[in-house]
Amino acid sequence: MNTIVASRTALVTWYALFALVSMAANLGSQKIAWQIYSGSFSIPLAVCIGTGVGLVVKYVLDKSWIFRYEHRSVTHGVHTFLRYVAMGLATTALFWATEFAAQVLFQSETARLAGGALGLTLGYIAKYQLDKRFVFA
């Protein structure tokens, strides 16, 4: 029993750490993108760039360290990544809705990034279950 609890605790700890790394990559790349370009549609563009960066970082970490998943071929790897992206669509909608709601309500970059962090946290909780059942099964 202690082994199961220890392994579950380790899994949750690593997953949370990797979620934080991915969130930092996402929000950091958003900030950089927004600093480079602050014209029309700069916020949606920054959010899309951040989402892409965070997605790739989280996929690599989850595949390698959380699920210890091996691809059988390049084609299998592409299909796995596409399933990962598909499972992330709903969680991305939650993340974006939370981030954009914070922007509309508080009209500040700090609030928008805080809303993004909240949305990412909620999304990652759901994403783990989806990935476990449908992507890395």
Results as ranks from 00 to 15, higher is better:
105 L>W: 14
99 E>A: 14
110 T>H: 07
12 V>S: 09
61 L>Y: 12
129 Q>A: 13
23 M>F: 09
31 K>Q: 15
31 K>C: 12
79 H>S: 06
18 F>C: 14
71 H>V: 10
71 H>E: 12
96 W>V: 13
130 L>E: 05
102 A>R: 09
48 C>K: 01
24 A>D: 02
19 A>R: 05
47 V>R: 02
131 D>A: 12
54 G>R: 02
51 T>Q: 04
88 G>A: 04
79 H>P: 00
39 G>N: 08
99 E>N: 09
53 V>Y: 06
137 A>S: 14
107 Q>L: 15
105 L>P: 06
71 H>P: 03
12 V>Q: 08
96 W>A: 11
78 V>W: 01
15 Y>A: 00
99 E>F: 00
73 S>N: 01
30 Q>V: 09
74 V>N: 00
115 G>A: 01
136 F>L: 08
84 Y>K: 07
127 K>T: 07
57 V>R: 07
127 K>W: 03
133 R>A: 15
21 V>P: 03
17 L>N: 07
6 A>R: 03
58 K>E: 10
17 L>E: 04
27 L>A: 07
101 A>C: 12
117 A>Q: 00
91 T>Q: 08
56 V>T: 14
6 A>F: 01
14 W>T: 15
36 I>K: 03
56 V>F: 15
42 S>K: 05
126 A>S: 12
78 V>C: 00
129 Q>V: 11
53 V>L: 10
66 I>A: 11
121 T>P: 05
12 V>D: 02
78 V>R: 10
3 T>S: 12
98 T>D: 02
131 D>L: 04
34 W>G: 08
137 A>Y: 06
22 S>M: 03
111 A>H: 01
53 V>D: 02
1 M>P: 08
4 I>W: 11
31 K>L: 15
4 I>H: 10
132 K>A: 12
85 V>N: 09
13 T>C: 11
10 A>T: 11
46 A>T: 00
38 S>V: 04
84 Y>I: 09
24 A>C: 04
49 I>V: 15
29 S>P: 00
46 A>R: 03
15 Y>T: 02
25 A>R: 09
124 Y>S: 06
37 Y>H: 05
117 A>L: 10
29 S>F: 02
40 S>N: 06
88 G>S: 04
65 W>E: 13
94 L>N: 02
35 Q>I: 10
104 V>S: 11
20 L>Y: 02
95 F>C: 04
72 R>M: 04
50 G>V: 07
43 I>D: 01
83 R>E: 04
60 V>R: 13
66 I>H: 10
128 Y>C: 05
92 T>Q: 09
21 V>T: 01
86 A>I: 07
118 L>G: 06
63 K>H: 14
59 Y>S: 08
78 V>H: 03
1 M>S: 11
90 A>P: 03
111 A>T: 03
87 M>V: 02
53 V>H: 06
32 I>N: 13
95 F>N: 12
36 I>G: 06
84 Y>A: 09
80 T>Q: 13
